[in-house]
Design a protein around this nucleic acid. Structure first.
Ligand SMILES: [Mn+2]
Ligand SMILES: [Mn+2]
Ligand SMILES: [Mn+2]
Ligand SMILES: [Mn+2]
Lengths: 147, 147
DNA sequence: ACTGAAGTATAGCCAAGGCTAAAAAAAATG
DNA sequence: CATTTTTTTTAGCCTTGGCTATACTTCAGT
């Protein structure tokens, strides 16, 4: 019997990849948000994180626990949350990608308001290769624009 | 005391919307897939659905149960799965959106291979307004291309 | 018609990510 | 400095969407 093809089908690879990306999405959003709060307010408090993420406080606390477990953040009881170097690096990458996604959407004709909304979910599925293409496209737009 | 602003912040709206979109993602993928299988093979069997989705059989069975609960599919024990009219309509909408997303990515310079992968996650966060913009952009491209 | 293989369903486990309600700590106020 | 208010944590619940192992049907080959 010739090894009845138990290799994953072409399609299944797509879905598996999308699920993996989704699994990182929450982490990415929290890290970016915590970075923003520290920049804007000097510190990231649980209540502010929860409010801006649109979740109840305990939900934010749980997410922060996961962040700490993953080595992206640190905090001591009843004190604010801070990013590790790794967390900071991730936050910066995620923030840059977020901006590129919004700009690309706008560049292809999506109203800015809508772009801001859709980008929040889209960003997590934009691979490095796609991001590279987005940035190239935007750079080109800018050049064309000023002639 | 002046009603201490318990309105959701501007940002939280984005995240809440993204979470809502994500909640539909699995349903959308299954419905599209079942439609494909019926078109390709004449029927959608649990094993094939699972294989193509890249999950274990019981996971597919559970998803199908949810689909039935939502009125998108029907099936009787040990028989294949079929889409309701509503499910069929959703499948068609989702399939069209999926294609537009892939084409847009390709149009802005993403390698086709990569576009196929990224689109699987991106599609679920593309609103009607964005989709409209994508299609307009693609139509324009096509026109420009043939001069 | 039997029987073994293939396909399907069920039971029961897990982690993530939501929630509310209650307890505990910190901060603000008189 | 005592008390009240705010903030944070903890406990405990739920659904989704993964999994494995086991039981049950259906189907095909002899
Ligand atoms: Mn996001
Ligand atoms: Mn973001
Ligand atoms: Mn998809
Ligand atoms: Mn799809």
């Amino acid at each position: 019997m010739p090894e009845t093809s138990s290799r994953p089908s072409k399609q299944s690879v797509r879905f598996i990849r999308a699920r993996e990306a989704q699994a990182c999405a929450v982490m990415e959003d929290y890290v970016e948000m915590i970075g923003d709060l520290i920049r804007d307010l000097g510190e990231a408090r649980t209540a502010d994180i929860a409010e801006r993420m649109g979740v109840a406080h305990p939900t934010a606390t749980k997410a922060i626990t996961r962040l700490k477990r993953e080595g992206l953040a640190v905090s001591r009881p009843y004190r604010g949350v801070f990013l590790t170097d790794e967390g900071e690096a991730l936050a910066n990458r995620v923030r840059a990608r977020h901006r590129s996604v919004v700009e690309l959407l706008v560049a292809v004709g999506v109203p800015r308001e809508t772009a801001e909304l859709d980008a929040e979910g889209i960003e997590h599925h934009v691979s490095d290769r796609s991001l590279e293409a987005f940035n190239k496209f935007l750079a080109n737009e800018a050049k064309e624009g000023k002639d």
